[in-house]
Design a protein around this nucleic acid. Sequence first.
DNA 1: GTTTTTTAATTACTTTTAGTAACCTAAATA
DNA 2: TATTTAGGTTACTAAAAGTAATTAAAAAAC
Lengths: 106, 106
Amino acid sequence: MEETLIPTALCPKVEHAFEILGKKWTGLILRHLMTKTCRFNEIQDAIPELSGRMLTERMKELEAEGIVIRTVIPERPIKIQYSLTDKGRQLEPVIRSIEEWAELQD
Amino acid sequence: MEETLIPTALCPKVEHAFEILGKKWTGLILRHLMTKTCRFNEIQDAIPELSGRMLTERMKELEAEGIVIRTVIPERPIKIQYSLTDKGRQLEPVIRSIEEWAELQD
DNA sequence: GTTTTTTAATTACTTTTAGTAACCTAAATA
DNA sequence: TATTTAGGTTACTAAAAGTAATTAAAAAAC
């Protein structure tokens, strides 16, 4: 028997959100940035298993998504600051609810 | 200068939570299971880009985590039902907050 | 009463993503 | 002068995900 399928396509916004959060390290990086503006190495120190290579890659992605801003502080020495945009700060309930769930577990 | 570092280790529970949610497809699968108990192919149909191979793998992981229960319905023909455990249902605020954030985006 | 379809997978193989380690430049510190 | 620090990049390896073919057991179609 043949059937005409009009597949209930997933909403692209929701799909995209899960795509961003579904990448390794993204959640933990955002969690750290929730508390304060951070320098590159601060994030690395906070998440020891995260390599510099991966952190660079994730920060570029998050910047491209408009979730994070990268700022060059033109002092001597030059510093790079990463902070959340409004869009990034709006992810706070997501990060908070994950942490709350985590704390409930045995 | 040398420094004695007592690294502020990430809480393992939180790390583990982000590890589970940080895998591709996990969020979308859980989102679908939030609404109802599902059969294997129902989930596949709801998420067309998700292959059977990946769905099998994720369901095994989620079962091992105690987030999902797999039930064999011994009727003719045999059916496999997947549903959330309490632990799984407690992830509802996580899934809901991701959806809410997604809907805010342009 | 064979053939085809459906369900819930498994297996083999390819591609993409992540991890490791070495290197880089400019400035700071020992 | 030599080493360290910050914030990366590059080349290579390992792990995760994607694709496609196969499977078994039952149901439906022919």
